[in-house]
Amino acid sequence: MQPDSRPFEVAVLVSVGRHPLTGRARRADHDARGLELALGLGRHLDRLQVRAVHAGRHDSGNDTALRGYLGMGLAELTLVEQPDGADVIPALATVLTRSPPQLVVTGSRAECGEGSGLVPYALAERLGWPLVNGVVEVESIDNGVATLLQALPRGQRRRLAVRLPAILSVDGAAPAARQSAFGPAQRGELAPLQEAGVIDEAFAEWTFSPARRRPKRLKIIKATSARERFKAAAAKAEGGGGQVLSNVTSEQGAEAVYKLLEEEGVLR
């Protein structure tokens, strides 16, 4: 790759999080991990420019939370000012189209509000960019193609190649964010940017309540006779008629186990 005069631009969308126990505003966990991922791209690229963007209202309540991102090593944070109850997607889309970065990194879902995890998807659809969710690591960036590792359930990883510009969303599987330093956080600048706000009307009509504990599922017994009811009540848990191979050589036994493992697709 020949050296490019323009730096590689990454925009990280950050939000105000909420501590799960105290309920206090903090830097959102997934967004901080996203910023960590973006800052770590420096090892692949000569010139990297990371821009953090927050859309929303800025007040004394969330100042510390937003400065938490600055404390990770940023000089400034773009603050797209929006009124309360605004839909941030149009504003973010405008900001991103005005000065398009090569990569947008977001968290997978917000920690307060609707928290549906739709922001990266809505932006991808509006901008027409490809989107990869659950990114853990960016392995390389070469000729406009990024090679990524995506987290799968059960600790598995998948390698993907995506054409830039692209949107990556990051969840809890990504490496933990670095600590936020107090001094740089206070010295950093919140650069405000005025954008017209679009009020989210549907959101205002919904009713919100603290999460109720979900009812535990009961075992429903459909019995027609007393005998069946008794059997169901006295039943011991069993696997449901497994196959038992006795009087076989160890080779035959191993063959049967191998067959099952292969069918389940766990052998790699």
Binding site: E238, G242, L245, S246, S250, G253, V257, L260
Partner: peptide, 27 residues
């Protein structure tokens, strides 16, 4: 465990395991 299992092989565990390893390595 045999009652719970979907597939149970009755035999010496070490021998069956060794045979399984041979099988996997050969394929």
């Amino acid at each position: 465990m045999i009652k719970r299992a979907d597939l149970a092989v009755i035999g010496d565990a070490n021998e069956v395991l060794a045979a399984l390893v041979d099988l996997v390595e050969s394929r």
